[in-house]
């Protein structure tokens, strides 16, 4: 049948060629060639080209998706680390503030205690000095009394030309001393 169609088309060839009708005259041989060539092309492309391109594109898409996922995960981790770091920084700041506060309080306490201790020491020293002065005054007064007693005895012996007994001496000294007023010295010493 194909051969008869070919013969038919050949017999009309010269008529068609002169009019240009061959342009729209389908040729059965060419149609079969087209079918074969197109079929072979489709087969080759389906086996050797399309799957590979599709696979490469799929791989690229997977890689891109993976990269995006990784980037998002990394960013989330970074955010987490950043917030943790900020938290720690905040804690450290709070701790340092607390330390400074405590140090300040300790310094204040220490200062106050030092002041108190100083005042106490000062008061104690003053008391001690007072006591020393009183003791010195007392000693001085004793010395003065002793001097006065001796002077009084000596004076009395000279006046009376007799030696006084111990009884007389004691009485005379007490009388002489009672006439003397040491209150001023004593109080002055106390004031100092």
């Amino acid at each position: 049948m194909l051969a008869s169609l070919a013969n038919l088309s050949a017999s009309h060839a010269h008529v068609i060629a002169s009019s240009g009708g061959f342009l729209i005259e389908p040729g059965i041989g060419l149609m079969i060639w087209t079918l074969l060539v197109f079929g072979a092309t489709m087969f080759l492309l389906s086996k050797l080209a399309f799957p590979r391109i599709s696979e490469a594109l799929g791989r690229r898409q997977a890689a891109i998706e993976d990269s995006i996922d990784t980037a998002e995960r990394t960013r989330a981790e970074a955010d987490e680390i950043l917030s943790e770091y900020r938290e720690r920084l905040k804690e450290a700041r709070e701790q340092s503030d607390e330390i400074v506060q405590r140090a300040r309080q300790a310094a204040e306490v220490h200062d106050r205690e030092a002041k108190e201790r100083g005042q106490e020491t000062l008061a104690e020293a003053a008391k001690r000095a007072e006591r020393d002065i009183e003791a010195a005054t007392e000693r001085a007064l004793q010395d003065i009394r002793k001097e006065i007693a001796e002077l009084t005895i000596m004076a009395t012996e000279k006046v009376t030309r007799k030696t006084l007994t111990d009884e007389d001496q004691r009485r005379l000294v007490e009388e002489a001393l009672s006439e003397l007023d040491f209150s001023g010295i004593s109080s002055g010493a106390q004031q100092n």
Binding site: A3, I28, G29, W33, T34, V37, L45, I53
Partner: peptide
Amino acid sequence: GVFSINKAVLYLLLAAIATCASMIYIAK
């Protein structure tokens, strides 16, 4: 006969070769 080769068949084959060669070359 009916499968005689002419200019159109040549261009068909050229088109098929160009299509397959370029696509397979890139795909590989």
